[in-house]
Nucleic acid binder design. Sequence first.
DNA 1: TAAATACTGAACTATATGGTTCAGTATTTA
DNA 2: TAAATACTGAACCATATAGTTCAGTATTTA
Lengths: 115, 115
Amino acid sequence: MVQYLTPPLDLSFTALSDATRRGIIDQLGRGDASITSLADKFQMTLTGMKKHVQVLERAGLVVTQKVGRVRTCKLGERGLKAEAEWIEAHRKLFEARFEALDEIISEMQQEGSDD
Amino acid sequence: MVQYLTPPLDLSFTALSDATRRGIIDQLGRGDASITSLADKFQMTLTGMKKHVQVLERAGLVVTQKVGRVRTCKLGERGLKAEAEWIEAHRKLFEARFEALDEIISEMQQEGSDD
DNA sequence: TAAATACTGAACTATATGGTTCAGTATTTA
DNA sequence: TAAATACTGAACCATATAGTTCAGTATTTA
């Protein structure tokens, strides 16, 4: 059984916090891509794109390999399992707090003394 | 039907990228809490904790209400639905790229010309 | 072998994060 | 009413993001 090392959630949630990087993941889902092709697609300098890819790599979400002068990027084998697990576990936490729906509804009828 | 405004994923993934803030969500899942009690629990100054709570608030994950001199924090009604949806959709993307398992296995037998 | 291509690294800018201290203000409580 | 409590805001620090330009190096290709 192969074990992929999962970097801490800090790194992956940081990687996912930028729309361009989420777009890169979308794109790589449609096929591997070079830094240049990604830079073109997202209207950015090569250097800028390289930095985004590095953030994704650090998080283990993307792996790259340089062959000749071309660096090819693809989705990392580790996937988004750890992230999905955290989100799902905590989604239940949120829902548990609000299953007393009538409380919310009655709150809606009165004005809260908020700031 | 109540519609909760969902701030962009940028804000929520940024909020989730810090271990202290993920811990705050854990904690609020066990019950509402004041800024002071959270600051104590996470060994941080009041001001530092307030900033973390503000990041969570901006993302809609936490809501706060000040009554008297105490600001009480609780989990936001909007939950983690949007985040779960993004993660799940893209998890499938990752998996689709790797369902050709034999490719991976054969890759494991040969050395890649990596950098 | 000369030119084009693909990337890399350093340096710079502006803004955000993650924390602090210090000096307030507002609200309880004794 | 004086003191304690709970928060707030400004200012500061170090580091990270998100981008750029410019000057390389390495690899194809003509």
